[in-house]
Write a protein that binds this DNA or RNA. Structure first.
Ligand SMILES: [Mn+2]
Ligand SMILES: [Mn+2]
Ligand SMILES: [Zn+2]
Ligand SMILES: [Zn+2]
Lengths: 148, 148
DNA sequence: TAATTAATGCAAAAGACTTGCATTTAAAGC
DNA sequence: GCTTTAAATGCAAGTCTTTTGCATTAATTA
């Protein structure tokens, strides 16, 4: 998705959202948001904890991510390896997107393309569901891994 | 997907595939295949172990499912709750399909519809990937859970 | 029936994530 | 600033899914 690495302006926005919900702006939370703002692809709680080296406990990372997710500041992705990964939902980025993951080296490519939204509403209507969303990820062999 | 519950014929097929690969047809494996043949939706290793009550150890369920997956007899699905679920790949069913899951009661609906395969090949080509597949699941609120 | 070796089952471990609880700290009021 | 108070943190311990080591069992083949 070629994230235009979130800037100060974005983080201000996020802080405002937090304030408006009786939530506190803590050092760990600021650091998580700042780190996520710099990342190009979803990262796990463990990676966040490692990169934040000392300034954010692993448990705090899990708790913060869950909270940020519930506030729609962060999106959770599942690459099928029992490890949740998270991306910042930036105002200037397209929030909804997908990924292409190499089955071998685990390289991640951001995918902006998506199918016609009519398919989703058709499915929702047909089965009487509301608020239907989807999770879509592509898997394959990247060019490096094809040769090896 | 309205599985046409796999019959004897299917299971014979599966046994043949196993034999051809130096694999043994054991009681737990037969029971897992037979059970999966009766299910309408993907089920977890734990559920398999529970339903097979005594005739298949949980570890054996995990090991068998992994093996069956590697032989393309079974497909793994991920409904975003840290629990892998498996479905039999039946000859007479459409192997490739998706699901619609209620975020509240976890009801599962089989979805046959899929997007234009051209999108997938376009993405593969654009990024130099080969053997690209996808995982797509829909989530929403089923009609019962909307009222509650 | 005996030999071979894949598959099983138990126990233990690994790994992701959660929870309880005492301590710290952000932020609101004075 | 100083005090108050409730949210957030960090540690330890727990849960839950999945994996691994190893001795035992059992499917296949001769
Ligand atoms: Mn992304
Ligand atoms: Mn299905
Ligand atoms: Zn690769
Ligand atoms: Zn429901």
């Amino acid at each position: 998705m070629a994230h235009s690495h979130s800037n100060e302006h974005d983080l201000m926005d996020l802080r405002a959202k937090l304030r408006g919900k009786d939530r506190r702006i803590t050092k760990p939370r600021e650091e998580i948001l700042e780190l996520l703002g710099k990342e190009d692809h979803p990262i796990s709680a463990k990676i966040i904890h490692e990169k934040l080296e000392g300034s954010c406990n692993l448990v705090t990372a899990y708790r913060s991510l869950k909270m940020l997710e519930s506030m729609n500041l962060v999106k959770r992705f599942d690459f099928g390896d029992n490890t949740a990964r998270f991306e910042l939902i930036c105002c200037n980025d397209k929030a909804h997107h997908h990924h292409l993951i190499c089955n071998d080296c685990r390289t991640v490519v951001e995918i902006e393309e998506c199918f016609d939204p009519k398919m989703e509403s058709r499915i929702a209507q047909k089965h009487g569901f509301r608020n239907v969303t989807h999770q879509l990820e592509f898997f394959g062999l990247c060019s490096s891994c094809q040769t090896a």
